[in-house]
Design a protein around this nucleic acid. Structure first.
Length: 944
RNA sequence: GCCGAAGUGGCGGAAUUGGUAUACGCACACGACUCAAAAUCGUGCGGGGAAACCCAUGAGAGUUCAAGUCUCUCCUUCGGCACCA
């Protein structure tokens, strides 16, 4: 056999591995286990995507390496087969989803097998198999039992033309994806899962697992934990109390009104008490009829309406303040009501500005310089001083007067002390004249107040300055000469807005400018004022104290919302409950599971928006398990996230008829050691399955707190133009064709070599030739195997073992292949290669190109598969120290290289370097300041 | 707006973690083989320059004997979240 023919080799070895059950995982093994997992595919009609191949190959490489390292490896596969595309296909064609699913999974199975993935096919699962979804339903019942599943009225997206409820992803720009009709909102009772009860643990336990940092942060942001205070605001004249949530209880003395979310219970309750009930009710109605996009679009102007005659008592000041209903407050977060502090919250500021509401400042900024010559000197006392900061506009141009102080390099505005209770208007006018000579400055307005602590170099004291920022305009350019003293201290310049922003080099001055340009809304930490007994204190430090003083409580809130678990669809797991006229919602007894999907003729939802199951009377009408009276089955089905929330557990014991998986098997296999999947699943699937797992853990049904020990993510493969691959764009790459032409091994190698595994990359069919050549070269090398002794080659192969081994662990597959290519290039130059070195090469290539590796391995008269051979072990003793090439730098620039035996002393290297002619011409007649020698690598000669 | 990742040849991308920038592959050019082509093999391949050398890792500063790598500022691109009080 001489020619490399992938079309013969690949099916041959695939069959061989299957017959020998090479990839079957055994839980009775005495070996240490390793559970490798990829996200099981949705078997779409498009067939396998090159993206699937990328992540499957990656974990296949890891799994194959682990087996050879002596682990008992579970690398399973199955089908996440419930879902919309199949159902929509059924609606359109009338073909049963089961039949479509069967056809699609057959295609996927054939394709995956043709790629030689080392899946344990004996554990194959399918979420649409009643033997599987029996347990999905069973887990739901356990949640129902524990009160984690409940019903709630929710709004769904409703297409009035297709008469169908739409998932969010089916709504494009507020319109139905398929018919373009504007989507309406419709209220429906929906099943919910209380994932929020696990919010804190889902956040905290991220500390226990080894996930990609970006996965962790994305989950943390999604969960959105934040701490704050709940504080009651009494409504004047009756018993109503509005509880608000705030993370800034320290600003409570600045609350000038409160705001209720339109959908909140508070709004519903208080609308009747308002003098303008009709107006408010109309506003609430208007908000409801808006689409999500209209409501949340980027920088939409805030709207709202006052509840006239309704007043709340601010618990800090005891003052009566107005009550508004406005859609910038969300009903589902916090308590659905907020106190508005326009002085210290940007949103409240915008709203207050629009509706002319009062602004009360209660926190003043305090910046303390801690770096540079003006940094506060510890130990020195502070000298307090009131001062005006003067922002001065040019008389004819859009320019502002800045003052550059010579002593400390401070670039700011003209500052002058306020003597004996002066106003900034008076003091400012005087100081502008004194410091710049300009005579006709006119005070326009106060801008804001801020405090600053720094070391005053001229006065040699720590200064605690209270800056009152004021805005002036010059009437004309009339000016006196600046005094010599002033000229020594600073110079004044006119700068445009952009130049001002670039020039300012102190935090306090930047804030002064921000107040001037954008209004004095200050959202930072600072000193309290106008806050009764809390005046002068640090705003952050007294948060809890203030909360307590107004009778509030300190609480933790989450952005995460409960999971809407109902779908008004056919192709999903039926929710296993019945609705009894007598007993209400009754769970189906566990022994009656699974509740199977009945066969139907029409897969379209009913006109009332219920799932098509509602039309199957024989199925719907049933008896109540409790009272045996008339009852109707729940016709909602589960979302396709349900089956995928626990599938990794089923793999541990996929044939079990008594339990979803035996605890014995779970104890052996779980947690999943390494789970690779897409970033797009970070906040849904990954979080949902962590939630289910924790629930099962709490019931004692699984042995671990977390399902996945390690989580990594692959980058997407895009079409050649860089867009997403999609059937509609016609840019999908067909793997069958590629496998036929270049072979599975080449395709696998190519996908690993394309680029960094975790980054998105555009497909490029042209470059695949390089991967094919690589394999052909490995093939050709087998004719060179013979007697050979070459320590250089031995060393190279040892280094390659090390590089490939660590690169696989870090998922740097592209550089692993690159190292193998380098090895092949060097081996090609030899006339003979030792069997040992060739076997090392094959051993390292095997996880990437398993078929050709096994074929060549057998040509070397090995009886057992290469995939049963131990993973090559790096032997440091056989590594020959590098050739001893030393780089000579002059002032850090490479000028020459020379050879020196490894272990040459530093001094000797220096002397050798100096003797080189290329070096001599640089150092001749120059003084050498010093010479730096990096052991065995660099000699850097530094000239003066 | 906030959070995260990244900017290196014609292209995909390397760089022992601060020590020869452009490994490996693709494309391209030339040569060998061939009647010819493909395949294969060999050589070359960041820019400027005859050369000595000089310039180059998004831009600008800084630290260092030495910076793609560290620090700061800015620009661009891609992801995620988006009125979360």
């Amino acid at each position: 056999m001489n020619r490399y023919d992938h079309s013969k080799i690949e099916p041959k070895w695939q069959k061989h591995w299957e017959v020998k059950k090479l990839n079957h995982a055994r839980e009775d093994s005495t070996k240490k286990k390793f559970y490798a997992l990829i996200e099981f595919p949705y078997p779409s009609g498009d067939g396998l995507h090159v993206g699937h191949i990328r992540s499957n190959t990656a974990m296949d490489v890891v799994a194959r390496k682990r087996r050879r390292e002596g682990f008992e490896v579970l690398y399973p596969i199955g089908w996440d087969a419930f879902g919309l595309p199949t159902e929509n296909f059924a609606i359109k064609t009338g073909i049963q989803p089961e039949i479509v699913t069967k056809k699609n999974t057959d295609t996927f199975r054939r394709q995956l097998k043709s790629l030689g993935f080392s899946f344990d096919w004996s554990r194959e699962i399918n979420t649409t198999d009643p033997k599987y979804y029996k347990w999905t339903q069973w887990i739901f019942l356990q949640m129902l039992k524990k009160g984690l599943a409940y019903k709630k009225k929710m709004e769904i997206n409703w297409c009035p033309k297709d008469l169908i409820g739409l998932a969010n992803e089916e709504v494009i720009d507020g319109c139905c994806e398929r018919c373009g009709t504007k989507v309406e909102k419709k209220e429906k009772e929906q099943w919910m899962l209380a994932i929020t009860q696990y919010a804190d643990r889902l956040d905290k336990d991220l500390d226990l697992v080894d996930y990609l940092p970006r996965v962790k942060t994305q989950q943390r942001n999604w969960i959105g934990k934040s701490e704050g205070a709940e504080i009651n605001f009494k409504i004047v004249g009756n018993d109503t109390v509005v509880k608000i949530f705030t993370t800034r209880p320290d600003t409570i003395f600045g609350a000038t009104y409160i705001v209720l979310a339109p959908e909140s219970l508070y709004a519903q309750e208080l609308v009747a008490q308002a003098e303008n009930t009709i107006e408010v009710a109309q506003y609430i109605q208007d908000v409801k009829s808006k689409t999500d996009i209209e409501r949340t679009s980027a920088d939409k102007e805030k709207t709202g309406v006052e509840l006239k005659g309704v007043r709340a008592i601010s618990p800090g000041t005891g003052e009566e303040i107005p009550v508004y209903v406005a859609d910038y407050v969300l009903a589902h977060y916090g308590t659905g009501a907020v106190m508005a502090v326009p002085a210290h919250d940007e949103r409240d500021a915008a709203f207050a500005k629009k509706y002319g509401l009062p602004v009360k400042h209660v926190v003043e900024s305090l910046s303390t310089l801690s770096e540079g010559p003006d940094a506060v000197k510890p130990g020195l006392p502070f000298v307090e001083r009131d001062a005006a900061v003067c922002i001065v506009r040019h008389w004819s141009e859009e320019k502002y007067l800045m003052s550059f102080y010579r002593a400390n390099g401070w670039k700011g505005f003209i500052v002058g002390g306020l003597e004996g209770g002066e106003t900034p208007a008076i003091a400012g006018t005087r100081e502008i004249h004194e410091e710049s000579g300009y005579k006709n400055a006119r005070f326009v307005r106060d801008v804001g107040v801020l405090h600053s602590q720094f070391f005053h170099q001229v006065k040699a004291v720590n200064r605690s300055a209270h800056f009152k920022v004021a805005y002036f305009e010059l009437a004309d350019g009339e000016r006196d000469e600046m005094s010599e003293d002033e000229k020594k201290l600073h110079e004044v310049v006119w700068l445009s807005e952009g130049e001002v922003e670039k020039a300012m080099n102190r935090e306090d001055i930047q804030l002064a400018w921000k107040f001037f340009k954008k209004g004095p809304c200050f959202t930072g930490e600072g000193i309290l004022v106008n806050s009764g007994k809390f005046n002068g204190k640090n705003s952050t430090e007294v948060k809890k104290e203030i909360t307590e003083s107004v009778g509030g409580t300190w609480v933790t809130k989450f952005k995460l919302r409960d999971w809407v678990f109902s779908r008004q669809r056919y192709w999903g797991e039926p929710i296993p409950v019945v609705h009894c006229e007598q007993c209400g919602v009754v769970p189906v007894p566990e022994k009656e599971l699974p509740i199977q999907l009945p066969k139907v003729k029409n897969y379209k939802p009913t006109e009332t928006g219920e799932s098509p199951l509602a039309a199957i009377e024989k199925w719907v009408n049933t008896k109540c398990p409790q009272c045996k009276g008339k009852a109707k089955r729940e016709t909602d089905t589960m979302p396709n996230w349900a089956g995928s929330s626990w599938y990794y557990l089923r793999y541990a014991d996929s044939k079990n008829k008594k339990e979803f998986a035996s605890i014995k098997n779970l104890k052996y296999w779980t947690p999943v050691d390494w789970y690779n999947g897409g970033m797009e699943h970070t906040t849904l699937h990954l979080l949902y399955s962590r939630f289910w797992h924790k629930f099962l853990y709490d019931q004692g049904l699984v042995p671990t707190n977390e399902p996945y020990q390690k989580r990594t993510s692959h980058g997407l493969i895009l079409a050649e133009g860089g867009e997403k691959m999609s059937k509609s764009k016609g840019n999908v790459v067909n793997p069958d064709e590629l496998i036929k032409v270049v072979g599975a091994d080449t395709l696998r190698v190519h996908e690993m070599f394309m680029g960094p595994f975790d980054q998105a990359i555009a497909w490029d069919t042209n470059t695949i030739a390089g991967s094919r050549r690589f394999i052909e070269r490995i093939w050709a090398l087998h004719t060179k195997v013979g007697e050979s002794q070459n320590t250089q080659i031995d060393s190279l192969m040892q280094k390659t073992i090390k590089k490939v081994s660590t690169d696989i662990e870090e998922m740097r597959f592209n550089t692993a292949i690159s190292a193998l290519m380098i090895a092949v290039n060097d081996l090609e130059k030899e006339t003979t290669i030792s069997k040992e070195n060739y076997e090392i090469l094959l051993g390292l290539v095997a996880p990437f190109a398993p078929h050709v590796a096994d074929e060549l391995w057998s040509l070397l008269k090995n009886k057992k598969s290469i995939h049963l051979a131990p993973w090559p072990i790096f032997d440091e003793k056989r590594v020959v120290e590098g050739s001893g090439k030393i780089v000579v730098q002059i002032n850090g620039k490479m000028r020459a290289t020379f050879e020196a035996p490894p272990g040459t002393g530093d001094k000797e290297l220096e002397e050798l370097a100096k003797k080189l002619p290329e070096v001599g011409k640089w150092i001749e007649g120059k003084n050498i300041a010093k010479v730096i020698v990096v052991k065995g690598r660099v000699v850097n000669i530094v000239l003066i």
